[in-house]
Design a protein around this nucleic acid. Structure first.
Lengths: 205, 205, 205, 205
DNA sequence: TATGAATGAGCTTTCATTCAT
DNA sequence: AATGAATGAAAGCTCATTCAT
């Protein structure tokens, strides 16, 4: 038993090692340019072994994407439910993205460039992931409108697009300019600026 | 003389034909999945002829991108200069994107997925295109701040990221959901909603 | 009539123009790397026109080779027959090669690299050309042996190989080092050295 | 350890197998007409595997050439140094070429047709190979002149061209006529004839 | 005569995947 | 679990040749 648990443990670690390497390589060269041999070399293993742990190249990307949405879902579970104010919920969401970018920039980069904006890799599975996140964000917006915190002349769906788009723009800009994100303070400032823009807009008062 | 003019004309038309086909194919399959044979077939010409008019696959994408930025630059030239109010300038920009999406959805799609978000295809030439657009948008924002129309607690650069990001999010969402855009009224409403969000934010008043 | 003669004349000139260009291009890039477009551009005409004057690429090379062997045959006709001493006949042959190299280095280059040493392009036609030249040289050697001027312990065929090989080596070396050949004196010296080697060998006496 | 040695061994053998096949195919069709698929088929492997062992078509030719010059260099090392008589040194060189032609006619054929006479494939690397051989032959000739065995009215460089040219002519003739070379006696006779011609010339005495 | 647009077979090379060891 | 040799489909590009004008 313990042996089996150990084996499971070792397998997970090896898979994580491969995904880590895959993240880096795909970030640098893009999914199509990334070769299995690159990923294996980066992970320090032979390329045959990648096929031992994953079914193929597409499955590696799948695992990466799964990892992302699992984390995002967990935060959503935590934030969507409960009656905390809308501002706090959205703030938590922004922080999730910023934290992820700090901890796993490669993963975030891949999600932005290969999934979020690309219609090519859009398998039904991935589409449903995205739609679920959109729907849950929409729920938060609807709640905000119900509580008369958010304007009602724009549809909740539209507000959620706008919000997620802003988050993505922020992250994309950093990805794009290869910015690193360091320290709680910087994240705090970025999150505030973003939420200010979202809630109050660009107009001087 | 007339003959040469005619030949030039015919050449341009043939190139436009190829670019039209390339736009569609790349939209559908993505740049890497798009085969030269697909493009040729879609354009109704032989395989080799694409190479008669373009140096290769990359050059076809280049021409597509060039087309986009040439149009965008023209609008920028028209809008950046002059002392019209900031709101009008930004409105014109939004309308340019919406008009383009209506007229050439394939081109816009390709720009969004293959250039705007992809760090792989980022040649120095393309990067300078993007930076120029960013800089010119920033100028408009700075003007708005100088005229006390836009808030000054956020940097002009940041406002421009946010604005362009919002435009891109809007377009992306339509691209993403394969929405068609028809009629002046719908564009008017979308532009208004976007500008409202940008200027006044999501908060109820 | 005069018109037809003129047309014939013009046609010959145009063909010569193309062959001149072909010689240069094939010399520089080799037959396979030489493109019809290169030849046409060098000749200052459109590449379609080359097909008006020649049947195709192979035929252009054929014409070049024909040109060479026609000249060589003429010299052979002049030298083989008659009862002049063997030394004079061989000297005349050497001078033919040197004169040709001076006047038409491209042609000589092409013959050396594409025909003389290459078994690939060896069509039956070309092979018979070469065999004829060999046979006629052999005749000269046989005459020399009969006149007791040349040694008889080596077969005439072998002497002719050796002689033609030496000529070819001389020319090849110049071709190879891109040497230009200028002036009667230099040719005289080269011919003498070659004939000295052929008749008397390298041994000091 | 033994395993690694074995793998190295197997790799060498496989490469040799491919080079053997490449030699045959290039001999038959010439470098440009030789297709990678032909080489693979002749070697009895898939064509992808050729790329596993060699970087590409050019690299296969490189390896073939390298093989030749490595052998030739070794003989040169053995012959150039030491104070044996010039006649013996040149005899050893002639025998090297004849032995090689007997053992590896394809390789010799390829060297003669694709390297020795072709200015197209002349990479700087190959040129330096050839120049080195020429220089070392020249040294032998200079030694012969110093020892008053070779005539001094012709430059050592010229004697070496002539000698190497004669060797090449001999081999070329066999290559050209597809002659096979069998038995020590035939080689002995050919070598003698060649050296006789080189040292004493064609004149009857 | 002259042009060059148009065609498409043919070639090299890449790389995901399989499989024997 | 681990390796990397082996496979072959797939794709970009070249260029001799044809042909409408």
């Amino acid at each position: 038993m313990t042996n089996q648990v150990n084996n499971q443990q070792i397998k997970k670690e090896k898979q994580a090692l491969i995904l880590e390497a895959a993240g880096r390589v795909i970030r640098e060269k893009g999914y199509h340019q990334a070769r299995m041999a690159d990923i294996a070399r980066r992970a320090g293993i032979s390329y045959g072994l990648v096929y031992h742990y994953f079914g193929g190249k597409a499955e590696v990307l799948d695992a990466l994407i799964e990892e992302w949405f699992t984390g995002l879902d967990a935060v959503m579970d935590l934030q969507t439910q409960g009656d905390r104010p809308v501002e706090k919920k959205l703030e938590a969401l922004v922080h999730f993205f910023l934290d992820q970018y700090e901890e796993r920039p490669d993963l975030v980069h891949v999600i932005i460039t290969e999934v979020s904006r690309s219609t090519i890799h859009l398998t039904p599975e991935r589409l449903s992931h995205i739609k679920r996140i959109m729907a849950r964000t929409e729920e938060i917006m609807a709640q905000g409108q119900a509580e008369k915190i958010l304007r009602r002349d724009l549809r909740a769906r539209y507000l959620s697009y706008f919000f997620l788009g802003a988050v993505e723009t922020l992250i994309s800009t950093m990805v794009y300019e290869n910015q690193t994100l360091r320290g709680r303070l910087q994240k705090q400032r970025l999150a505030e600026a973003l939420l200010t823009m979202f809630f109050d807009g660009a107009r001087a008062r």
